[in-house]
Nucleic acid binder design. Structure first.
Lengths: 403, 403
DNA sequence: GTGAAAGCGCTAACAA
DNA sequence: TTGTTAGCGCTTTCAC
């Protein structure tokens, strides 16, 4: 069947070198001018599609429309002058050939852009998605990214220390920009990998550092305000339940040793807010993740201790709601027996009739701000730091200190 | 500065045609042999990276290592024979040049594969992510996809009828396979778009149809078993709260008109399960989304009606938990005054001390099954239908009918 | 307003 | 085991 110099390549195309190549090329070119002969190069109509295999190419469409490839390209991209009639003819040809538009792979290589924003989650996906904060930010982000023609590629984040430090996707997948959702210490392996690849980064709630765009909120200020509110109610014995300190994800009261080495900026800042308000927590309880069950565990421990705190300030609403549930479980009334405050300003209807006293952060805006930072980086501007405001929201879970 | 035939193209490369081109090519080739002269073609070391711009190419590395490009390629892909020493030399050169590995864009075009699986969510992301079912399935899916070198691109699903039927990402982004999370009726615009693009599809809980791989669970059987359990407890006045019927997302009791035109397979099947057990629900309450608040709304309405049902069977745990909350709110005891059952088998700690009676579906396995189906399609096999088993799980929310 | 030509960065078939 | 060669499908520059 095959002449010595012809062969079929991995994608089913016939390839020929030297003189014969020119002959074949001429044949394919001819085929383009006579769509009838295209059969061999086109996937059967509506057959079970195997790969992303999109056999019909712009060249085929151009040939069918009787224009050059470049003109056909213009018809689709709209990024140049083209006569209305010509465009119409091209689109008509595309319709006839069931051409669904330019192959993104070719376009991407040529443009040097993938149109993809890698989003590195702060955790394994399951846990990350259970956090409404992450989810709402992600939602705000995609809303901003959509109109820019950008899509979100999910990249699992650092799990625990038993896992390899970065997901292979991070080192190999195409992405124009990366967003790291939480964490991002200076020596973060994720940031290191991205830096090596030359991929610009937007860091959310991380440690500011050179060459990285940062988006965050005024959580230190918000936490200070929240604490002052609690102090204003007369509380002095105040415990605090925190987000994880680092990838070790320890659970329990943190001694001075651990307190001095908090790797995650967000945890450190929110803790600093408490101190700023002049409060020295009776206990700093570290959790392995911002989840209801960890809050409940903390609540049980703190509220059954001898010298029970009269107020518990939590670094997230999920943790706070766990504490509220634990209090209820123990027969303690909130806020009569114990006050509980959270952070984030989530709407947690299942906590009804209670509404958490919390610090509300603008989640959708934060997502949008991340999107703006992404757009900045993509446009070659270096993104300024974006810090969004927060607002104290009084609910029903804080009240005067019990007498 | 420029000769008539030289120009700078959009990505900053000098381009020249004809004879001059050969000269320039020779110059660049020379530069490759003498890394010192590369400066112009390489991004400055560790400067603020602008685009995904990764200026150093495999050719540069090959030149520096004194091998051909194809050999250098082998060193990275490992998909061919190469001497250990040669590979080492190439990797060494890569290190020196801060080359972080082959540009995925080039690789993708050449291979005809993007390594991307588009996941079309059943809803706007915010709502989709609030559903633990979706999230856990997604988690199981990414776990299976990771080792295959595939990443997940999030594609917002159909919102409501006021929005355009498909997200632009769906029609333009590169993806080797698409997964549609829910829905997928025969005339679904999402499926239509993917079919036109020749992208193979895995449909989750949708209507089986030609050329589409389907993954689902035995929800009809599970629902029948659940209903028989409730009937066995003596209940006869049984209402049911369902998932959405279609993109219209109506909320309230469904009349015969709506009941006859349920577009979403999953809703229809779970409803059929109830009927299979010989139960004619007193009310079929349609919800706009599987969320706690819609369950609560349904619960309030159903439990305040004159002829209150003694049991409410819900098509999801989230809906069921909303009903439980509504019952508590109304001062009704569960299950003494009313029995409530759900579907999915979620762990909802905040419902404590109650544990929902439910039908557990293997969420992580479902994600894995989707991953397997993806792998099948990618390998050119056509995927058989995958139906996973479910299991009745008795909790504390169902009990004997009140006397 | 249209066409010719070049080439993005890579992989794979084949020859050597 | 390595090198030569072709080309994936597209966009863009420049000439006309």
């Amino acid at each position: 069947m095959r002449t010595p110099r012809a062969r079929i390549d991995s994608r089913g195309f016939r390839q020929v070198c030297g003189y014969a190549a020119r002959v074949v090329k001429r044949r394919r070119a001819a085929a383009r001018r006579h769509p009838r002969d295209l059969r061999r190069y086109v996937a059967g109509p509506r057959k079970v599609p195997t790969l992303s295999a999109q056999r019909t190419t712009l060249a085929d469409v151009a040939a069918a429309a009787g224009v050059s490839v470049s003109t056909a390209s213009l018809a689709f991209s709209g990024s140049g002058p083209i006569a209305d009639r010509t465009r119409e003819r091209v689109l008509e040809a595309a319709r006839t050939l069931a051409y669904a538009g330019p192959n993104p792979l070719g376009r991407q290589l040529r443009r040097g852009r993938s149109g993809i924003v890698g989003v590195v989650m702060g955790d394994v996906l399951r846990r990350a998605f259970r956090d409404p904060v992450t989810v709402q930010v992600l939602d705000g982000l995609t809303a901003r990214l959509g109109p820019l023609g950008l899509g979100v590629l999910l990249v699992p984040g650092p799990h625990d220390t038993t896992q390899p430090p970065v997901d292979p996707l991070l080192s190999t997948a195409a992405m124009d920009v990366a967003v790291q959702m939480w964490g991002g210490t200076t020596d973060d392996p994720v940031l290191e990998t991205l830096r090596n690849r030359g991929i610009p980064v937007v860091l959310v709630e991380g440690t500011p550092q050179p060459d990285v765009a940062v988006v965050g909120i005024d959580d230190r200020g918000g936490m200070a305000e929240l604490t002052r509110h609690v102090v204003g109610l007369g509380h002095r014995r105040i415990a605090t339940v925190t987000l994880p300190f680092d990838r070790d994800r320890v659970e329990g009261p943190a001694g001075p040793g651990r307190l001095s080495g908090i790797a995650w900026e967000i945890t450190r800042r929110r803790l600093a807010g408490v101190t700023d308000a002049g409060v020295e927590p009776t206990v700093v309880w570290e959790t392995p993740a911002s989840l209801v069950e960890h809050g409940a565990a903390a609540g049980r421990a703190l509220l059954q201790a001898a010298d029970r705190p009269t107020a518990i300030i939590c670094q997230s609403d999920l943790l706070a709601s766990g504490v509220v549930l634990a209090a209820r479980e123990l027969g303690l009334r909130v806020p009569q027996d114990v006050s509980v405050a959270g952070f984030d300003g989530l709407d947690l209807p299942w906590l009804a009739p209670d509404v958490l006293t919390s610090v509300a952060q603008p989640l959708a805006d934060k997502g949008a701000a991340i999107g703006d930072a992404v757009a900045d980086l993509l446009a070659g501007r270096d993104a300024e730091e974006r810090v969004l405001p927060v607002a104290l929201r009084e609910g029903t879970t804080t009240g005067p200190v019990p007498v």
